[in-house]
């Protein structure tokens, strides 16, 4: 902790600070929010920020602050799951492709290239159009779409590490491929994977927010930042711009925290290499 505070890596410092702050708010939000996020106060619709409602109220008279806290939690959780699916499956595929090489590797990487050529949100929309937007479909669809980018990173690392002496040594000593992959190589590429995973998380947040903004995110009864922003948009003209502002601010903070964190980690890793 002291090391982080003293370091001159401002990206990492700001990233940890912002993301930490958001995490704490989300955690608190699990137990306590100023109001029940679903409670509708018919007498206080679209009210501006006040002491009672710091962020104001929406068109149903719900407290925006409580909904933003809960929505951030939803977005965070959904993005986390998306990223986790992509990371785990991508690591498996990338490790297998990179370790085995040959036709198998070529084929997998071709498919990955084809998928990454298309923008995530567009592909996700198409798939959701085909399969329908169920409650958790968005997580699976986006999760699968996040696999190729991880697979690529892990593969290239594996190809690099495979020719290293320590792997050759392990092979000579008769270690099984699984042991080499999990015990020898994976711990060595951790430092590359960590920043990549953080940046992937950031992309997942953006993708989730875009999808729920378009109305194809997780189910409507859970507050989610993208969907709230979409609702808030109709009241820009109606004289409640703060609604959109606060929701948007939450998205921006979340994205900024994660991207700074990712970049900070990347800088740290590059420095470690030197």
């Amino acid at each position: 902790m002291k090391k982080i505070l003293k370091s001159d890596n401002w990206y990492l410092k700001c990233g940890i600070f912002i993301t930490g702050f958001i995490l704490i708010v989300i955690l608190i939000g699990q137990f306590w929010t100023p109001y029940d996020s679903g409670y509708m106060d018919g007498a206080a619709r679209l009210e501006g920020p006040s002491f009672a409602h710091i962020f104001g109220t929406d068109n149903f008279g719900r407290d925006i602050l409580s909904r933003v806290i809960e929505g951030t939690g939803t977005t965070f959780l959904v993005s986390f799951c998306i990223n986790l699916i992509g990371l785990l499956a991508g690591t498996m595929i990338g490790a297998a492709a990179g370790y085995r090489g040959g036709l198998f590797d070529d084929l997998l990487m071709r498919i990955c290239d084809a998928i990454t050529a298309f923008p995530n949100v567009m592909l996700a929309l198409v798939i959701i159009a085909v399969f329908g937007s169920g409650d958790l479909n968005i997580i699976w669809v986006l999760g699968i779409l996040f696999i190729p980018s991880y697979a690529r990173i892990v593969r290239s690392q594996f190809v690099q590490q495979k020719s290293c002496n320590y792997v050759q040594m392990a092979k000579l000593m008769g270690a099984s491929p699984l042991r080499i992959i999990f015990v020898h190589i994976l711990p060595n590429i951790y430092s590359t994977l960590l920043p990549a995973a953080t940046i992937g998380f950031n992309n997942a947040v953006l993708a989730e927010a875009s999808m729920s903004f378009l109305g194809v995110g997780v189910s409507a009864n859970k507050p989610s930042l993208g969907r709230m922003l979409n609702e808030a948009q109709s009241f820009l003209v109606g004289g409640a711009p703060w609604y959109a502002a606060f929701v948007g601010l939450a998205i921006v903070l979340l994205v900024m925290g994660l991207s700074l964190l990712g970049e900070g980690l990347q800088k740290e890793q590059l420095r470690g290499k030197k």
Binding site: L229, A232, L236, A244, G248, V255
Partner: peptide, 18 residues
């Protein structure tokens, strides 16, 4: 630049509209 980069296009759209 770092701040602008963190604003997703749809929020930029809303900000510009406003």
């Amino acid at each position: 630049n770092q701040i602008v980069m963190s604003i997703p296009p749809f929020f930029i759209g809303i900000l510009l509209t406003c």
